[in-house]
Simulated assay, not measured.
Amino acid sequence: MQNATYAANRVKLNFVRTLTLRQLQIFVVASRYTSFARAAEELHLTQPAVSMQIHQLEDAVGLRLFERVARKLTLTEAGEVLTHHASRILGEIKDTEDAMMSLKQADSGSINVGIVSSATYFAPKLLAMYSHLYPKVDVHFSVGNRDALLRLLQDNAIDLAIMGRPPPELDTTAEPLANHPQVVIAPLNHPLCGARRFDLQELRRDTFLLREPGSGTRMAAEVMFRQHLFTPVKTITLGSNETIKQAVMAGMGVSLISLHTLQLELRTGEIALLDVNGTPIERTWQIVHLRSKQLSPTSVMFRQFLLDHAALHLEQEYAAFAGVFAKPPVGAKR
């Protein structure tokens, strides 16, 4: 039994090794016309060349594929079966060729993008703009904190990441996209609302609402505390920007947060910006990928789209708040 199985597998292997795609192409055309002469004409070959390729294919298969009945060429049962499978094989190859060509042209294919949660307030608009320009491209994005995106990059699960501080712990290429200001927010009834340029120590009695460890916003707050030799009387850790904003509006405390998460609340006047010395903290949005990652032409085009449009988009979206921290004229009262 084992010998019979081995022999059968050897026959299959020899069959696959012997036949060629050219033979299948010639066979499919010949089966369509059931005429070697018509096939030769379409393929720009001689009739003897077509006959030779068909005979070689029959030798590889071990069965006759054509027969003459009343002087007419027809397909045998084996020929009918092989026509079906050969057409599928050639169709798959054509689909593969089209897919590779689309990747070369960079106007189709797919991209996997990771986005830190603070970037979800503007990145989807940029993705929508890109999808409108390149509707054949499928853009898939994953949202998480900074640590989560680093894991996705390391696992090669995403092509590109939009984040703040580039990761020194990974060998990456990072390119700046746009300015990314961090601001201190408070409820509208906070006693320092409207005060100009006061020191962070004035908030020492306030509860600071912080993002979870591993978040870039949490890291920015901790750096600010160290630089100002500041220790808040109390901190509360919350898991999202939305939760922090709601907690601030409810009077639970103050927080350092990305300005780019606040457009709705600032437009509706539901939250206050505090004019703390050293703020806004100017950070930078980055587009990041592993240095070892061979980006597809589609990913390269998408990265360039972000580099060309992100800064201008954010400037336009937040132009109304550009002067919030403007310094008063010389001699003006504070």
Rank of each mutant, 00 (worst) to 15 (best):
N156T: 09
G164M: 06
N156C: 04
V116Q: 06
N112E: 12
N156D: 13
A78R: 06
G79P: 03
D171H: 04
K125Y: 15
A106N: 08
P187R: 07
H190E: 14
L82C: 08
R151P: 08
D155S: 12
D95E: 15
A195M: 14
A161S: 00
A128H: 00
P191S: 12
L73V: 11
F66N: 00
Y121A: 04
K125Q: 14
V139P: 01
L75N: 03
F122L: 05
G114E: 03
S110Y: 07
V113N: 09
Y121L: 01
I111V: 10
A99Y: 11
H140Y: 09
E169M: 14
P168D: 10
I93M: 01
P124G: 01
Y121H: 04
L103Y: 11
N156A: 07
P166Y: 05
T172W: 03
A99L: 08
I93F: 06
I89S: 08
V69W: 08
T74V: 14
P124I: 02
S118H: 12
T120Y: 02
V137P: 04
I111S: 04
A178T: 04
T120V: 14
D147G: 15
A123P: 00
P168K: 03
L126H: 08
S108F: 12
A161E: 00
V116N: 01
V183P: 02
D95M: 11
H85M: 14
V137W: 02
G144R: 03
M129S: 02
V143N: 08
I89Q: 00
A174Y: 05
I185C: 13
V81I: 11
E169P: 03
I185M: 06
E169Y: 10
I93Y: 01
I115Q: 01
H140V: 14
S131Y: 05
A186P: 12
P187G: 10
T173A: 09
V116G: 06
A70K: 15
K136P: 08
Y121K: 05
Y130R: 00
L188K: 13
M163H: 13
A195L: 14
Q182H: 15
E97H: 05
M129P: 02
N189E: 12
F66P: 05
